[in-house]
């Protein structure tokens, strides 16, 4: 697999640029760099495997709920325990999307982001393709920007995979129709779909902080595995810190703190405070770790 990547780099990206050294990369150059990064990320087996796992989880949750409620029982024992929204899933397929996102958000989604972001720079440095890329006059800032954008697109795609899989599973197993919001009011299925879209957008955005951290860690090392492991480790550590009540003064500054805030979009009226805090927090993380990654990547010695 790694060999294929190397050849891909040599064949598609590096060679043309070396062949036309006079072409200074303009707007189209930046764009093509982004597309090639995107292609590189999404064509990997690793990425496809991650997507497959993410797609299977909603199916498993959906089938489990279906089996448990087959003979008229109540999901989660009827006492509101178990994953979020479990008791609503049986009444409306859309809630499977929210349940699936709540289930995957603590671990599976961020793990996938950690793998992709951690590997973005370090992986290529490890395989030795990075320096070929840098021979081309693409510029390190541009290259990093392309990688960052590809990672952000991956965040959105991962959330989309979970959401679409949950939506299809839900529609296959559970009733489709008017949606009861958490506050007890009812909206049409179409409006419900809009809420799903908004929730997916917020969840994707709430992963960007972690993506920036992963990208920064990725610029620190030449080992892709080390960068992935470190990113996932940081993610788990911060979530543990976020769960310790004695540390509640630092909680609002931890990137996973508002992850479940997307729930507020399913209320009536919507409570925007947490969503807003979350977006600001993610933007701050992206700014800090994005600039740190840039500072490191544009000044580091690349020997591999």
């Amino acid at each position: 697999m790694l060999r294929v990547d190397t050849e891909e780099r040599a064949g598609e990206v590096v060679t043309p640029r070396v062949a036309e050294p006079l072409a200074r990369p303009g707007r189209s150059g930046t764009l093509s760099l982004f597309w090639s990064e995107l292609g590189l990320t999404f064509r990997r087996w690793r990425t496809l495997a991650l997507f497959a796992i993410l797609a299977v989880i909603p199916v498993v949750v959906g089938i489990a709920v279906k089996i448990e409620t087959r003979d008229g029982g109540v999901a989660g024992g009827g006492d509101g325990e178990g994953p979020a929204f479990l008791s609503q899933v049986t009444n409306n397929s859309l809630f499977l999307v929210f349940t699936s996102l709540a289930v995957t958000l603590p671990f599976f989604l961020p793990m996938a982001i950690g793998v992709i972001a951690g590997d973005a720079v370090a992986g290529e440095a490890g395989v030795g393709t990075l320096r070929y890329l840098l021979v081309a006059p693409a510029g390190r800032s541009r290259l990093l920007l392309a990688k960052a954008n590809a990672t952000a697109v991956f965040c959105a795609a991962a959330v989309l995979v979970v959401s679409v899989s949950a939506l299809l599973t839900g529609m296959a197993l559970f009733p489709v129709g008017d949606v009861t919001l958490l506050s007890g009011s009812t909206i049409s299925f179409g409006d419900g779909l809009l809420r799903v879209l908004a929730v997916a957008g917020v969840v994707a955005a709430s992963l960007l902080g972690l993506a920036a951290i992963g990208l920064f860690i990725s610029t620190l090392t030449n080992s892709g595995i080390a960068a992935m492991a470190t990113t996932v480790g940081v993610m788990i550590t911060v979530q543990i810190l976020d769960a310790i009540p004695q540390l509640d003064m630092i909680h609002p500054y931890l990137f996973p703190h508002y992850w479940l805030g997307f729930v507020d979009l399913v209320r009536d009226p919507v409570i925007w405070d947490q969503v807003q805090d979350n977006l600001v927090l993610q933007a701050v993380y992206v700014a800090i770790f994005g600039s740190a990654a840039w500072a490191r990547f544009t000044t580091r010695d690349i020997s591999a």
């Binding site: 609503q88 009444n91 007890g184 479940l260 729930v263 209320r267």
Partner: peptide
């Protein structure tokens, strides 16, 4: 409405009607 992390408990009084809805258990 008592707003919990992933659920909401609403109590509504309108004239002679009192409703309560618990989204965690989907009970009224």
């Amino acid at each position: 409405s008592i707003v919990d992390e992933t659920s909401e408990y609403s109590l509504i009084h309108n004239a002679d009607q009192v409703w309560a809805y618990d989204s965690a258990t989907n009970q009224v």
